[in-house]
Simulated scan of single mutants.
Amino acid sequence: MADTAMSGAGTTGGDDPLQRAIWRLRSRGCWTDAAALLTPHAGRAASAAAAVQRTALLVERCLFTGQGWAEAEDALRIAEAIAQDDDDRGAAACERGQLAYAATVLGVRDRADEARSALGRAAALLSPESRTRPLLDFRRGLVAEHLADAPQSARPAYHRAHAGAEAHGDTLLLSFTWRHLAALALRDGEVAEARKGFAESLRIREDLGFLIGTAPALAALAEAEPEPEATRLRAEARRLFHLLGGIPTWLADQLHPAESTPASV
């Protein structure tokens, strides 16, 4: 399965015109339009990877907007149905785990057991060399940290994901692992280490043009910076947040504390 079939990681598309177009749309929060580009490919047995990638885009939409659950479920069922091998099946299971995680952490429905089960199934199916393995490790870290409240279990999962992302050249996933390792460092009072990780996450997202992920990165770095830099970073995060129509929705609580409850991606 291609590494672009990941909702929390991937590349800017390289030399592939289709993947470049998908990246441009995805990075601006146009997940439905990006998924539509894959629709002609996602229903064929030969295109199991396209079906998983389409699913991943729609799952990411759910996590960032809290909407589109039925569309994501439909896409996921197609991906599961046309999977050709263990890597395809493992990638689809990884997306099922992420969808269940998103529903749980956003308070839509408690699907924590489903998230754990699906990610465990993905772990059994994916080979150690699979390009999806680092993403799986990252998502198992999310479940440990945010559903099980077990940061001590999340940290090694994030470290495995970080090492795997480096090995596979998955720069965007590195922005996620840097950020979450930094958040754990901040939780432990290691402010300098946290600042370094948050800054690296922000740098990567700005370099890649990952607009929908830039406001969360700015807000996270603000938590580790002294004033007046923290205020400047939050102001820039608010500007981008409103420019993108209030996406991700869960960031509103951090930027406007009275409005909503955040998730973490």
Rank of each mutant, 00 (worst) to 15 (best):
A123G: 01
G197H: 12
A93K: 07
S130M: 05
E95G: 08
V191L: 13
Q152K: 11
F138P: 04
L211D: 14
L126R: 07
Q152A: 15
A148H: 11
L211C: 09
P134F: 06
A217Y: 04
G164E: 02
G141A: 09
S175D: 02
A91C: 07
P151R: 05
S117L: 09
E129Q: 10
D87P: 00
F198H: 10
E80Q: 15
A102L: 03
D86I: 01
A154W: 06
A144P: 09
A161K: 10
A199E: 12
A75T: 13
A167Q: 15
C94F: 04
L106T: 05
E190M: 11
L119C: 02
L99E: 04
T177K: 03
R131Y: 02
A182G: 14
F198V: 00
A167M: 10
R160C: 12
A185H: 02
G141S: 04
K196N: 06
A112Q: 15
E95V: 14
D86E: 13
A199I: 06
T132C: 13
E80Y: 01
R205M: 00
L99Q: 05
G107I: 07
G164C: 08
H180C: 10
L174R: 11
A144I: 07
G120P: 00
G189F: 00
S153Q: 13
A123K: 05
S130L: 06
L186P: 04
H180I: 05
R203F: 06
W178Y: 12
G90R: 01
L173N: 07
F198W: 08
W178T: 01
L147Y: 07
P216W: 11
G197V: 12
A79V: 02
A215F: 03
S127I: 01
